[in-house]
């Protein structure tokens, strides 16, 4: 019984990799580390999701996409998606595949470390140069900042690091 349960969960996770961030189609919600738990009871699936940024307008879209995607599976009759705040989502939950997907989209993955003064550094996602400047802490979406690479002269975005520290 226990084994069946985990197999079903695995299958759901595999399927959920098809659900992308609506604004970054190279990264799935699984790779973003948004999934906190999955419960499968017979034909009902219940998922707990961690919102990345609280005011993010993509959240209801993600919820709808999860429901539609899982309902495509023959053995799923109902899907429930709940947003939970515990534990708080942090940018270190993004997987290696997620970090690669961000770069493919032209977004530098969130840096893993903060400097002592709370600032941080990323490399250019195009030419890997470290010779970059921060143009705006805030960007086109809540989770991104705008930077400029002085080596390859491209503007680019970086995913903001968020940490509980």
């Amino acid at each position: 019984m226990v084994k069946q349960f985990s197999e079903a969960t695995e299958r759901m996770i595999e399927k959920l990799k098809e659900v992308k961030d609506p604004e970054i189609d190279t990264v799935s919600i699984v790779d973003l580390g948004m999934i906190q738990s999955i419960r499968v009871v017979e034909k009902s699936v219940s998922i707990e999701l961690l919102p990345t940024f609280l005011g993010c307008p993509a959240l209801p879209i993600i919820k709808k996409n999860i429901e539609q995607t899982l309902l495509h599976l023959d053995d799923v009759r109902s899907v429930e998606v709940l947003f939970v705040h515990s534990p708080p989502w942090t940018s270190d939950r993004i997987s290696k595949a997620g970090r690669e997907g961000l770069k493919k989209f032209g977004i530098a993955p969130p840096p893993r470390y903060f400097q002592d003064d709370g600032s941080w550094q990323v490399d250019c996602p195009f030419c890997q140069s470290t010779y970059v400047t921060l143009e705006n802490l805030f960007g086109p979406t809540a989770c991104r900042s705008i930077l400029y690479c002085k080596s390859c002269k491209n503007p680019f975005e970086a995913m903001k690091p968020v940490s509980t520290i």
Partner: peptide, 20 residues
């Protein structure tokens, strides 16, 4: 324009906090 992006983003975050 950079400030427009920044302060709009801050307002959006804050509205998210209010909702919560």
């Amino acid at each position: 324009i950079e400030e427009d992006v920044a302060s709009a983003s801050i307002s959006q975050n804050s509205m998210g906090h209010a909702v919560m």
